[in-house]
């Protein structure tokens, strides 16, 4: 008898056992309601997937490491320079801070910039053609309230419109119904930055008589009582004359299509 013929009954038995086990596994459910088949699948494939990720990441990381060695020197030089500038800025701000401490009349300025935040991850994003909203992973239980400002290290992202205990919906600044009171940082002109539904914002209520240079930074003025004062909103892209007010295009400070982590302002004095 050939080897294949000798193994035929064992192969048949294995197939029949497997068939019966599969039948059982699609009916029996674990305590959390998953079928046994799904539990077994997760149990088997999660470590396999983890190991595959580990190997792929390891190989990719090694290749990237050697590939990026060339740029390390340049990056190091740039970071050293940035570090030097930041240290200088830090010393200056500390000196300013001490000056404010000495004079109680400036205490209100410090309070304007003091607020607590809670960090959150973006867990859902709306279809851009419909509206510009995000859902983030903090909610009422974390202290989030309606109209809490949502920011990143780069600037303003939007405001909270609805909350659940553990998540919140955020209206992005570029939503057609969103707006923020802003100040042009250098000229101190005040206006309203409004969303367009696209990737840019529009700055309204700047009279035709004013000169607004391209690249000027817009920061929040705090006048809307939503966004704390002094947060970057965007930079001026272009301006043209209108009937009374200029029509100014603004590029948001935050790349709103790539936001993955945000800070939600939960305590504004």
């Amino acid at each position: 008898m050939t080897e294949a013929g000798r193994n035929k009954p064992l192969l048949g038995l294995s197939l029949l056992i497997l068939f019966n086990l599969l039948l059982i596994s699609v009916q029996v459910r674990s305590e959390d309601g998953r079928t046994l088949l799904r539990s077994w699948g997760l149990m088997i494939f999660t470590p396999v997937s983890g190991a595959a990720d580990f190997v792929i990441d390891g190989i990719g990381g090694t290749i990237n490491y050697f590939g990026s060695l060339r740029t390390f020197h340049e990056e190091n030089r740039r970071l050293s320079e940035e570090n030097r500038l930041l240290k200088t800025e830090l010393h200056r701000l500390r000196a300013l801070d001490r000056a404010f401490d000495r004079d109680a009349r400036f205490a209100f300025i410090r309070e304007l910039y003091a607020f607590d935040t809670v960090l959150a991850g973006v867990i859902w994003r709306s279809f851009p053609a419909y509206n510009q909203t995000l859902v983030v992973s903090v909610g009422e239980r974390h202290g989030v309230r309606k109209d809490s400002a949502v920011i990143t290290a780069d600037g303003v992202v939007g405001r909270v419109t609805t909350m659940t205990p553990l998540s919140s919906e955020v209206q992005l600044l570029n939503d057609a119904n969103a707006a923020a009171a802003v100040t042009l940082q250098d000229s101190r002109l005040q206006g309203i930055a409004q969303g367009t539904g696209g990737s840019l914002l529009v700055l309204n209520f700047i009279p035709n008589t004013e000169v607004v240079p391209e690249g000027e930074l817009l920061v929040t003025s705090g006048g809307d009582r939503i966004y704390p004062r002094g947060l970057p909103v965007g930079t001026v892209l272009s301006s043209r004359r209108g009937a009374v007010y200029q029509r100014i295009s603004v590029k948001p400070a935050v790349d709103l299509n790539r936001v993955e982590e945000v800070a939600v302002v939960i305590g504004v004095p």
């Binding site: 009954p9 048949g12 038995l13 029949l16 056992i17 068939f19 019966n20 086990l21 599969l22 039948l23 059982i24 009916q27 029996v28």
Partner: peptide, 25 residues
Amino acid sequence: GALAGSLLGLVEDYLFGFYLGLNGL
């Protein structure tokens, strides 16, 4: 024999309301 056992076991599971495949196995 295994095939007959599997079939009759499945029938028993069906008739007596066991999980299909238990008596089959």
